[in-house]
C-alpha cells in the first residue's frame, strides 16, 4: 500500500542558515492518524506548512522530498502542485476566529473551493456542504450558511472549518492544534467530532498537538519532535507502553493522566534537555559536513 503522504529527509532553514526542520522523514498511511507532538517551536506547524506549500517566505526548504500518493510534489510546477495539493490535502486551522474571512458569508467560504477550484456547479456544492454541516452537528445550517463569521461562536466556526476541510473528500487533512484556541468545554466535543468524521470518511490526518493526552485518543501513529528533529516515532500503544527515548519518557511524565489525575506531573529534567542539546549539536555537525 502506498502511503498517502511520505516525507523524506526534509530540512528547512531560516535566513541565517539555522534549521527549523532537520532531516524529517515520516509516512502517513491512508485512513490513518499520525500525531505530531512536541513543545512549542518544535517545528510541528512547519511540517504542515511544507506539505501544504505555505511555508513563510523567510523559511526555505533546502532538502528532502514530499510525496503525495507517490507523486513527488517537488517535481511539479508551482501551479500544478497548488492544484494537486488543494484537491487532496485540506487544513483544519488552529484558530477558528482568524481562519474565516470576516467580510464573506460562511456559505460562500465553504463552497468556493468546490466551485472555483474543483469546478462543481453551485447546486451540487451546496448540497454537499449542507450534508457536511449536518455531519458536524450544526442544526440551523441555513442561518449559518448566510452568516458572517462574527455572528458565530468559536466552536461553531471550528465546526464550519471542519466541515469545509472534509468537503472535497481530501486524502489527507493537516489538523494544526485544532482545539487549542477553543474553550476547554468545547475542546472535547471538537476532538470527538474530528475523530468521528475521520473514521466515517477514512481520511488520513496529520494531527499536530502538544498534548499527549489528545494523542492517545485520536491517533494510531506518533512522531515526537524536538527542535525540528524527529526524536522517536512509533505506534501509539507502543510509544505509551515502551517509550525508547528519554525525552519521550519525560514528555509522558509531564502529561497529566486522565485516569489518574493525582499522579505527579513532572517537568522535563535538565539532564534530558542537555542530552537533547547534544543531539542537536551532533545533528548540526553532520549537516555542516553534508554541506561540505
Amino acid at each position: 500500500m502506498t502511503p498517502c503522504l511520505t516525507i523524506t529527509n526534509l530540512s528547512a532553514t531560516l535566513p541565517g542558515g539555522a534549521r527549523v526542520l532537520r532531516d524529517v522523514s515520516l509516512d502517513v498511511n491512508p485512513g490513518e492518524v499520525r500525531a505530531l507532538v512536541g513543545e512549542s517551536g518544535a517545528g510541528k506547524s512547519m511540517i504542515g506548512k511544507a506539505i501544504l506549500g505555505v511555508l513563510p517566505s523567510s523559511v526555505r526548504q533546502v532538502s528532502g522530498e514530499i510525496f503525495l500518493d507517490g507523486q513527488d510534489l517537488g517535481a511539479l510546477s508551482a501551479s500544478k502542485r497548488r492544484i494537486l495539493v488543494g484537491a487532496n490535502v485540506a487544513l483544519i486551522p488552529q484558530d477558528p476566529l482568524t481562519a474565516l474571512n470576516p467580510s464573506r458569508r460562511i456559505g460562500s467560504q465553504m463552497t468556493d473551493q468546490l466551485i472555483k477550484i474543483l469546478g462543481w456547479n453551485s447546486a451540487k456544492a451546496y448540497t454537499r456542504i449542507r450534508q457536511l454541516l449536518d455531519e458536524v452537528q450544526i442544526r440551523d445550517r441555513e442561518r449559518v450558511l448566510r452568516s458572517y463569521p462574527h455572528e458565530l461562536s468559536g466552536g461553531m466556526r471550528q465546526r464550519v472549518l471542519i466541515a469545509t476541510a472534509f468537503a472535497a473528500e481530501p486524502k489527507l487533512i493537516v489538523a494544526d492544534e485544532p482545539t487549542t484556541a477553543l474553550d476547554v468545554t468545547v475542546q472535547k466535543q471538537i476532538l470527538r467530532l474530528i475523530a468521528t468524521m475521520q473514521r466515517q470518511h477514512a481520511t488520513a490526518i496529520l494531527f499536530v498537538t502538544h498534548d499527549l493526552g489528545v494523542v492517545a485518543k485520536i491517533s494510531q501513529q506518533v512522531t515526537v519532535l524536538y527542535g525540528g528533529m524527529i526524536i522517536e516515532q512509533a505506534g501509539v500503544s507502543d510509544l505509551f507502553a515502551d517509550p525508547q527515548h528519554a525525552y519521550t519518557r519525560a514528555l509522558l511524565r509531564a502529561t497529566p493522566r486522565y485516569n489518574d489525575p493525582d499522579a505527579r506531573v513532572e517537568p522535563v529534567q535538565p539532564d534530558v534537555l542537555a542530552g537533547l542539546q547534544n543531539e542537536l549539536a551532533a545533528n548540526d555537525h553532520a549537516w555542516e559536513k553534508h554541506l561540505g
Binding site: 487544513l91 474571512n101 477550484i117
Partner: peptide, 11 residues
C-alpha cells in the same frame, strides 16, 4: 490565517 487557508484550497 484565512488568506493562508485560501492558498491551501488551491487558489
Amino acid at each position: 490565517d484565512y488568506v493562508v487557508l485560501a492558498r491551501v484550497k488551491g487558489f
